[in-house]
Design a protein around this nucleic acid. Structure first.
Length: 426
RNA sequence: GUGGCUGUAGCUCACCAGGUAGAGCACCGGAUUGUGGCUCCGGAGGUAGCGGGUUCGAGACCCGUCAGCCACCCCA
């Protein structure tokens, strides 16, 4: 008999973890709604060309990490490695860029990389994209949203904002020439990857982890010196907004990011709790992407949150979310079970917020109580032979040291209403 | 894609000059024929990731493969 495993890098999210995911998703929905952002639901597959053009032909993602295949019509398709390209495509296609647009989406992304902690081949991102606003108040709003989300989830203290200004495409082209000119003189002091990038993607050499390369970079020209005055002053305005918000940040002049479409502001939220995969959220401005895709020139900015990494961080901080039942229903025999059915049906309709789990499969009271205990339920609701005969039920507290009580069945509604009230105030 | 480490019961791990496996926790049952959590007793569960090789004999050694982890790389 063959046994199957999930294929490499594809991870099952099991019931034990889903409460954490749900709490994260709920927090995201509420925070984004509170800032006036609307949800988009986008295809997972787009034409290969869309990603190559937006992310950049010589980026790692496009060169070696995409899940690309020919469909039955022999067109080249790709499982999305990130969300911005598809979102911008949809915005252009449906003419959504005409007014200020605040959007978000959540879902799986695919990159063919070697898996390790915090890095999977299928992973999930929350993407937030805003169109039509060129001024730094937009950048500030996006960062404020991040921080609000971190606070909601209890990870605020564990994340650090790194931010940089990488200027316009023209600025970077001029800087690139100067950087290449400088680094070429020290070519043999660079690590192998960086030597290769000298031709392909020189800016990425900036955040090389090689100490030798970093030593060479200490004497390199700085990108900041190649940015025009407007860009520089806009960035200062943004930093002022962050100060006003009380968002602490670290200026990182070597933060460049690996996707070609970014310009001006780029930022990352990083943590020390996740080892090498330390970036939980990354984003920035991409003012020319809409035009690249054939839309009217529209400034834009956004960010993406790695949801697996966020859950990993929450787990590292011992943030737990569990959803035990409120009531576990125990019945003595077939007659009691049948007696309980219409009652539970009515209670569930009247109290949709109360979780009522019924014991299935029979068994002794003892084994049913064991199950009740393990379920984590707050109360056991017992329909025994005597209770059914007398029109009563027994309620036994499973989490508190208190006596069980037997009450008329008809008083259950009142009991549950009281239970709800105390649960909500607690 | 590169390098290193690991792979024994559901989980965490052990044993062993190479002689076909054991503990704790979890699970099931009983002590308690209407009551969980504590305790005690009992039980079930593994062809030692998979395939091949060396050997009289391998979970232990070798090779391959798959998977996980760590680092590089990269990013979420």
């Amino acid at each position: 008999m063959t046994t199957y495993r999930a294929i490499r890098g594809m991870v099952d999210i099991l019931p034990e973890e889903t409460p954490l995911w749900q709490s994260m998703e709920t927090a995201a929905l509420e925070v984004l709604s509170s800032y006036g952002y609307s949800e988009m639901r986008l295809p997972i597959i787009e034409s290969t060309d869309l990603f190559a053009r937006s992310i950049g032909e010589v980026t790692d993602i496009v060169e070696k990490e995409m899940y690309t295949f020919a469909d039955r019509n022999d067109d080249s398709m790709t499982l999305r490695p990130e969300g911005t390209a598809g979102c911008v495509r949809a915005v252009v296609q449906h003419n959504l860029a005409v007014t200020p647009q605040r959007l978000w989406y959540m879902g799986p992304m695919f990159r063919y990389e070697r898996p390790q902690k915090g890095r999977q081949r299928q992973f999930h991102q929350l993407g937030v994209e805003a169109f039509g606003v060129a001024t730094p108040d937009q950048d500030a709003e996006l960062i404020a949203i991040c921080r609000q989300l971190w606070r909601r989830l209890g990870v605020d203290d564990a994340l650090q904002l790194e931010i940089n200004n990488i200027g316009s495409a023209d600025d970077r082209a001029r800087y690139r020439d100067a950087l290449v000119a400088y680094l070429s003189q020290h070519r043999n002091q660079l690590d192998a990857d960086s030597q290769r990038r000298l031709e392909s993607n020189p800016l990425r050499i900036l955040d090389s982890k090689s100490p030798d390369t970093q030593a060479v970079l200490d004497g390199a020209p700085g990108l900041q010196d190649y940015l025009d005055d407007t860009t520089q002053s806009e960035f200062q305005v943004l930093l002022g907004y962050l100060d006003a918000l009380g968002v602490r940040y670290v200026l990182n002049p070597r933060l460049v990011r690996g996707l070609d479409y970014y310009n001006k502001t780029v930022f990352e939220w990083t943590t020390e709790h996740l080892g090498a995969q330390s970036t939980v959220c990354g984003g920035g401005r991409y003012d020319s992407l809409v035009e690249t895709f054939g839309g009217k020139a529209t400034p834009a900015a956004g960010f993406a949150v790695g949801l697996e990494r966020l859950t990993l961080l929450m787990q590292a901080l011992d943030i737990t979310v569990s959803t035990p039942a409120d009531l576990y229903v125990i019945t003595a025999d077939e007659n009691a079970y049948q007696h309980s059915l219409p009652r539970l049906d009515a209670l569930r309709r009247q109290f949709p917020d109360i979780d009522i789990v019924q014991h299935l499969g029979g068994g002794s009271f003892k084994s049913q109580f064991k199950r009740a205990d393990k379920s984590g339920a707050a109360w056991a609701l017992v329909y025994g032979e005597a209770e059914v005969a007398a029109g009563q039920v027994t309620l036994k507290p499973l989490r508190a040291e208190a006596e069980q009580q037997t009450i008329p069945d008809a008083e259950l509604e009142a009991f549950l209403a009281g239970y709800l009230a105390t649960a909500q105030s607690a």
